[in-house]
C-alpha cells in the first residue's frame, strides 16, 4: 500500500539510455563512486560526400549500486542531457547485496514509474523546453500564425 508521497520524492534513479551521451559527469561527481559506466566509441560513415565521419559514444554498461547510493541527487542535477530521473519507488530490498546493483535494463524499468514533473506556479514562466515546443508547433501549423506558408 503506497502512502501519499510528496512530489519529487526520492526513491530510486531511472536512466533514459537514449539521452545519455556518456559524458561521465554523473560518474565523476557521485560522492559514493557508485555509478559504473563502460562505453566504446563508434565511427559512423559520412552521410554526404565531403562530410566528416562522425564518432559517437555507445553505452555498454551503466550500473548504479544502490547499496552504496546515498540518494543525494547530484548525478541527476549534473546530467546535462536529462538522462537520469528520480522515481518514488522504494520497495526493492533484496536478500543478495549484488542484486542491489541495478544495470541499465533495470534502470530503464524504473523509468515507467517516474512521475510527471510538478506543475509550475500559476502565472509563472513556463519551462524553456515547453515554450520552445509550443513555438515549434505554431510554426509548423499549416497556414500557421507566423504568416509564412
Amino acid at each position: 500500500m503506497t502512502p501519499p508521497l510528496p512530489p519529487r520524492s526520492r526513491g530510486v534513479i531511472a536512466l533514459l539510455e537514449e539521452n545519455c551521451t556518456v559524458c561521465m559527469l554523473c560518474a565523476r561527481d557521485c560522492p559514493d563512486w557508485c555509478i559504473y559506466i563502460d562505453s566504446h566509441t563508434e565511427v559512423t560513415a559520412p552521410t554526404a560526400p565531403g562530410a566528416r565521419p562522425r564518432t559517437r559514444n555507445v553505452l555498454d554498461r551503466f550500473a548504479i549500486d544502490f547499496a552504496l547510493c546515498m540518494y543525494c541527487g547530484i548525478c541527476i542535477e549534473v546530467c546535462p542531457f536529462d538522462a537520469l530521473f528520480w522515481s518514488p519507488e522504494y520497495e526493492y530490498a533484496t536478500s543478495d547485496i549484488a542484486a542491489l546493483t541495478h544495470e541499465k535494463e533495470q534502470l530503464r524499468e524504473w523509468l515507467w514509474t517516474v512521475p510527471a514533473p510538478p506543475a509550475t506556479e500559476p502565472n509563472a514562466q513556463p519551462p524553456r523546453e515547453v515554450a520552445a515546443a509550443a513555438k515549434a508547433v505554431r510554426a509548423d501549423y499549416p497556414g500557421g500564425f507566423s504568416g509564412s506558408s
Binding site: T2, P3, G11, F66, A67, C69, M70, Y71, Y90, E91, Y92, A93, T94, S95, D96, I97, L100
Partner: peptide, 22 residues
C-alpha cells in the same frame, strides 16, 4: 551474515516493511 538488505539513505519506513515481508 545478513539475510535482507534494505537500501536507502535512510530508507522509508515502508521500505523496512517491505524488507520485513521479504
Amino acid at each position: 551474515p545478513v539475510d535482507v538488505y534494505v537500501p536507502g539513505c535512510p530508507p522509508r519506513p515502508e521500505a523496512l516493511l517491505q524488507g520485513i515481508v521479504t
